[in-house]
Amino acid sequence: MAELVQHIINGVAAGTIYALVALGYTMVYGVLKLINFAHGDVMMVGCYAGYASAHTMGREHSTSFLGVTVVFLVAMGMCALIGFLVERFAYRPLREKPRLVALITAIGVSFAISYGFQLKLGVGALTILPGASPRAFPEVITPSDWLVVGDPSYPDIVLRNTQVISVLIAVALMAALQVLVFRSRFGVAMRAVSFDHRTSALMGIPVDRVIALTFMLGSALAAGAGILYAIKDTRIEPLMGTQVGLKAFVAAVIGGIGHVPGALVGALLLGLVEEFVVGYGSSTWRDAVAFGFLIVVLLFKPEGLFGRVTAEKV
């Protein structure tokens, strides 16, 4: 029983991080009908931005409340910038082209970013590209156990402060997003664009700007998720984004892509299932779980748990 509770705690903590990344996929898919394959890699860049800013501030400053906030903001700003650039120079010129073209481009962008970061390149003391070897992410939140049930040396259940903080931050970001999408002018514009580009343009909505902002917003959320992931995993490397990104995408599809609360549910489900497989099965099967889950969902309910069935217009 205690083991089960522990797995649920870990699963939920992992799931909320997936959820933040999944939201980026869902939002972009909503407005562009494009799977932004590079999303996970943008998240990875966010991790490195956080890493760099934490190191620049030094251990003393980066662990303070203000320091952590700065780490998050730097990462989010950096990712929003990259999201903007990717959209502007890679996706926008292709918007009227067949979807396959955009998909191939997205894969190309993903490759360029993740493998570009594997090169080691520096000018003097300044590192431009970090190289392939993994780096330890600084402990911006000093880890401690908030709740220990059972014998302290072999505890039954451990609740870490990082888990609680990560869930809180994730929930706060998602709540902010929900308010933005359903209670603001920008949200109305975004939802209109996701229904129909041309009609929205006729109604006076600046479609290009809305799409660019959606990208920036999704990328910023990914950056937040990336920092939380790095705190949990304590290790960052250039290829981390691909795996996390794919899993988050799976979560988005399970929930019904384009559906914001669906992404959360899908991500939590995925986090829990993964945790159970690792806990009760073997950790080597972990990476197959997400895809197996995805294939089952797509075979039996291709629109996802909450997605709407759309008929194809001829």
């Binding site: 494009l34 998909l103 895809f291 294939i295 797509l298």
Partner: peptide
């Protein structure tokens, strides 16, 4: 699965199969 899936979904499923095959081999 390509009976039911199109475009990007199919791409993801083929990718998933590729990864699953690799994980099965590793185990």
């Amino acid at each position: 699965p390509s009976l039911r899936l199109k475009g990007d979904y199919l791409a993801i499923v083929t990718l998933g199969f590729g990864e699953i095959i690799r994980v099965i081999v590793q185990n």
